[in-house]
């Protein structure tokens, strides 16, 4: 649906050139929710703004629906932009127009018949659940309500893609959930492809099918969300994943020498990760029976990514070295990933 090929964007500033996006190639396929995550200044906004040419790339192609937008005439470009909706962190609604007028504006400019506009706007107002506020002005709405209006406004031209630049960053956690649900619903029900820019991994975890991790203008890792979460390759990716769960908290606890991480001589602290393919038989009771290893669980978590579970257990295994080694081998045989975090040492 949207394909970036070797896109590069450099800003010239007084303090020299800033390479905001460096040779990025990604392919956002039709119907998916594609996340782009990175720390502040990584170039996410610049990248997404290249997708509708709010920012014109210095190099590379931006292919939308088979057409290279960098080569399109101004008229063609405007036509394409109507098919690429965009929502922003700060909503950017027109302050002098009512909610209804904000949503209707784009259609009005195309001289769409009044009753057609009305039908469409009312339908969108119902979708965002703000029918009774249609004559309010943006300044009279809460942040979450404003974002819903801006989503409705972005949908009024029946776009194929919805670009969201930090759409939930200005909102509280609960409102964020409502907006994420709404975006997911739009994606499912209307088949609109979504590009989500965010710096929060839980947003990605919540709704994305695929994700690209950006650092200093480059995409350092990209893949299906389940793969990324279960087999992250890059350090940056791991950092983001750890922000979205407590499973890495254990490293902190170890560093602080927290009592639960104090091990006895014959104990080992391990992290087990499994997905639905290896939840079929009762591993823990099996190893304790077979190898005489005791297992006490310190932390357990299950993430549901695209309906498939990824489980994490952090536990202390207690037994002889050999028995523990055998148990670990047994886990691994079942496709469970095992990482020994810490061994009890002999004082």
């Amino acid at each position: 649906m949207i394909q970036l090929e070797h896109v590069t964007k450099t800003f010239k500033t007084k303090d020299g050139d800033v390479q905001a996006v460096k040779d990025v190639s990604i392919h956002v396929k039709e119907g998916m929710i594609y996340g782009i995550i990175g720390f502040s200044g990584a170039g996410k906004s610049t990248l997404v703004r290249c997708m509708n040419l709010l920012e014109r790339p210095d190099e590379g192609k931006v292919i939308f629906d088979g057409q290279d937008l960098t080569q399109a005439s101004p008229v063609e470009l405007r036509k394409s932009r109507k098919k690429i909706g965009m929502i922003f962190q700060h909503f950017n609604l027109l302050p002098a127009l009512t909610i209804y007028e904000n949503i209707a504006l784009s259609l009005r400019m195309e001289k769409t018949p009044k009753d057609e506009i009305d039908a469409k706007v009312m339908n969108l107002l119902e979708l965002i659940d703000l029918v009774e506020r249609k004559d309010s002005y943006p300044s009279q709405l809460s942040g979450g309500q404003k974002q819903r209006v801006s989503i409705a406004r972005a949908l009024v031209n029946d776009p194929k893609v919805l670009l969201c630049d930090e759409a939930t960053s200005a909102l509280d956690p609960q409102t964020t959930q409502t907006i994420l649900k709404l975006i997911k619903r739009i994606n499912k029900e209307r088949g609109i492809t979504v590009v989500m820019i965010t710096h929060e991994m839980f947003v990605v975890k919540e709704i994305c099918d695929r994700v690209a991790i950006m650092d200093a203008g480059r995409v350092v890792e990209e893949g299906d969300i389940v793969d990324i979460f279960s087999h992250p390759q890059e350090k940056m990716t791991k950092e983001f994943i750890s922000t979205a769960s407590n499973a890495n908290k254990i490293d902190e606890l170890i560093e602080q020498q927290h009592p639960i991480t104090q091990l006895k001589e014959n104990e080992q602290l391990v992290r087990l990760q499994y997905d639905q393919t290896n939840t079929s038989h009762p591993m823990i009771s099996e190893i304790s029976r077979k190898f005489n290893v005791d297992c006490s669980i310190i932390y357990g978590n299950i993430e549901i990514l695209q309906e498939s579970p990824i489980g994490t257990l952090i536990c202390v295994l207690k037994g002889s070295d050999d028995d523990i080694r055998n148990s670990i081998a047994c886990f691994k045989q079942d496709g469970i990933r095992v990482e020994v975090i810490k061994r009890g040492h002999i004082d």
Partner: peptide
């Protein structure tokens, strides 16, 4: 008028 409002308008395909 905030720059973002103008940008939103451009992104809506306004001339």
């Amino acid at each position: 008028i905030p720059e973002g409002i103008v940008e939103a308008s451009i992104s809506m395909g306004m001339s």
